[in-house]
Nucleic acid binder design. Sequence first.
DNA 1: TATTGTTATACTCTATAACTATA
DNA 2: TATAGTTATAGAGTATAACAATA
Lengths: 167, 167
Amino acid sequence: MPATIVEETCSGAEQELTQPAGFLLAQLGRAMTRRYRCALSPIGLKPRETHALLRLRDGGAMSQQALGVALDIDASNLVALLNDLESESLISRRRDPADRRRHVVEVSKRGTKLLSEVEHAAAEVEDDFFDALDDDERVALQGLLSRVARSADVPSPAEMAGEDSAC
Amino acid sequence: MPATIVEETCSGAEQELTQPAGFLLAQLGRAMTRRYRCALSPIGLKPRETHALLRLRDGGAMSQQALGVALDIDASNLVALLNDLESESLISRRRDPADRRRHVVEVSKRGTKLLSEVEHAAAEVEDDFFDALDDDERVALQGLLSRVARSADVPSPAEMAGEDSAC
DNA sequence: TATTGTTATACTCTATAACTATA
DNA sequence: TATAGTTATAGAGTATAACAATA
């Protein structure tokens, strides 16, 4: 029996293959989202909705545009997301009296209460996902990612209109 | 005039808001994928396809299942992806004589040649994305992410069938 | 004229189940 | 019976353009 192929296909164990950090990041991000979705679905929230609630609670009330930039989600897609949250009374939208084009978005009391339940589930997912890292390493990772996020500033598809480069 | 709201909504600059590492990871992964797509589209490759080619070149020929696990992509979705790559002669599929159920996937010569072009573009994207980090920090990030990837072992949606937990 | 939010739409990605051929 | 690959399909996510209200 040709052990060669068996070893190749079944290897799995310890391939020290170094893949580009970008692809690794993209892949882990997807895996993380999948786990969030799994853990949050019984509560009735999607990962993105949860992230929005967290951001609104910790960042305070803000316009939809500001929230969109913060979550790196397109403004048009944010509308539907907020509609869902609003229909369940987890957030509120009100016109900004200073600029009536704007909607000021805010977490409701009900949303805040739900967040405590959600936060526990989410923290559990993260704790499991980052199991290989000790506390110091998790802080280090968090710091590195935060700096990347702040610098990359995530041009967000909308903000790239009118540039000479493609896309 | 209510300066409160103006400051809140327009802040932008330096909010030291610490978001959960998981959501940060998911968000950056999406942003990274978007940039890959932008940079790779003129070449005619999608991020996932590029990742697959890289993995096949660096990991050697393997079965579709093994590739699916490596890329954390569902086996059924992998089929279409490989069909596209094969139709452009970038990879080849051949039956494994030892187990005729399996397809051994391999990068073609043409695929390898294309990869050198692609790698340059991808590296440029990454270099720009991780601009805030110096070389040591990039290595550190890569190491942390690699360890997470290896430990989390990414259960991949398919592998979770038959467990008592939901999802 | 530019910006905020909205709607509609097309496109991609992901998840699920059922089928086949091999084992 | 179980596994590798395939197909089909529904669902979630994403990108794009056009529009109304307001600045």
